[in-house]
Simulated assay, not measured.
Amino acid sequence: MDHDEFIGTVQQRADLAGRGEADSATRAVLTTLGQRITEEEAEDVAAQLPMEIGRYLNDDVEHGQQFDFPTFKQRVADTAEASDVEDDPETAAQAVASVAVEATGTGQIQDVVSQFPENEGYGGLLAGVEEAET
Rank of each mutant, 00 (worst) to 15 (best):
T71P: 04
A14N: 05
I109F: 09
A28F: 04
Y56Q: 05
T91H: 12
R36S: 05
T9D: 08
T31M: 10
I7S: 04
A77V: 02
T31K: 13
A17W: 01
E40K: 14
F6M: 07
A92C: 03
S24Q: 06
P117T: 02
V10N: 04
V76A: 05
G64F: 12
D87I: 06
D60G: 04
R19S: 13
T134R: 15
G18Y: 05
A95Q: 04
D84G: 14
E120K: 07
G34T: 08
L33A: 07
V76Q: 06
M51I: 12
E52Y: 04
D68E: 11
F69G: 05
V99C: 03
E21W: 03
E86Q: 15
A100Y: 01
A82T: 06
D87T: 10
E90L: 12
Q65C: 04
A82F: 07
A80H: 03
R55C: 08
A47M: 09
S114N: 14
V113K: 02
L126D: 02
T79I: 00
Q12T: 14
G124P: 03
A95E: 01
R27E: 13
S98M: 06
E130R: 14
Q65R: 15
A28Q: 04
T71W: 02
G18I: 00
Q35L: 09
E133G: 02
E90K: 14
A42N: 13
Q115G: 14
E62I: 11
V96N: 02
V29H: 06
A93D: 01
A14I: 05
G128C: 06
P117M: 00
I37Q: 07
A46Y: 10
T71N: 09
E133M: 14
A17S: 14
T31C: 03
G124S: 13
R75D: 03
M51L: 13
Y122N: 03
V29S: 02
G128Q: 07
A100R: 03
F6K: 08
A22G: 09
E133S: 13
T9R: 14
Q94W: 06
E5R: 13
F67R: 09
R55G: 11
T71M: 10
L125N: 03
T38S: 15
E52F: 05
A28V: 03
E40A: 12
D59T: 15
P70D: 11
E120A: 07
D88K: 11
Q74I: 01
T134Y: 11
G54W: 07
M51G: 12
D87G: 00
G123V: 08
P89S: 09
G64P: 11
M1W: 01
G18F: 08
Q11N: 04
G107I: 01
A127N: 10
V45T: 11
E62D: 12
G54E: 06
P50D: 07
R13V: 02
V10E: 00
Y122M: 02
Q48N: 11
R36Q: 06
A46V: 11
Q110D: 05
